[in-house]
């Protein structure tokens, strides 16, 4: 059963591999675009890596609504959405997809 503690290490590896940076530079609160210098295609790469590792497919509408909830903002465009992304957003989404009960209490 996945918890934030089991998700973070493989997620950090996926992000670090994709961006070719040391793993210890990937923090839970790192913003992917502004802090880790990810470009659009890196986000596609990371997303594919997560899908392969955790065995689910991303749903754009779900991600959008989750981000709106956690940031308390409405997200108008895909570009605006991707600019907000932190490593923790990915972690939360993985948790939600793989262990919805835990996510509800989290």
């Amino acid at each position: 059963m996945h918890t934030p503690e089991t998700i973070f290490p493989p997620l950090r590896t996926i992000v670090a591999m994709s961006l070719q940076i040391p793993e210890d530079e990937v923090k839970s609160n790192s913003n992917l675009k502004d802090e880790l210098d990810a470009e659009s295609i890196d986000l596609l790469d990371i997303r594919f890596g997560i899908e392969q590792e955790f065995g689910f497919k991303f749903d754009d509408a779900e991600i959008k609504s989750m981000l709106e909830k956690v940031t308390k903002n409405s997200v108008e465009t895909a570009a605006a959405l991707s600019r907000l992304l932190t490593v923790k957003h990915f972690l939360d989404y993985i948790l939600y997809k793989t262990n919805p009960e835990y996510y509800a209490d989290y």
């Binding site: 295609i41 596609l44 790469d45 997303r47 594919f48 899908e51 497919k57």
Partner: peptide, 8 residues
Amino acid sequence: VLENTHPL
């Protein structure tokens, strides 16, 4: 095929 092909 689509779901298993790397997006890049």
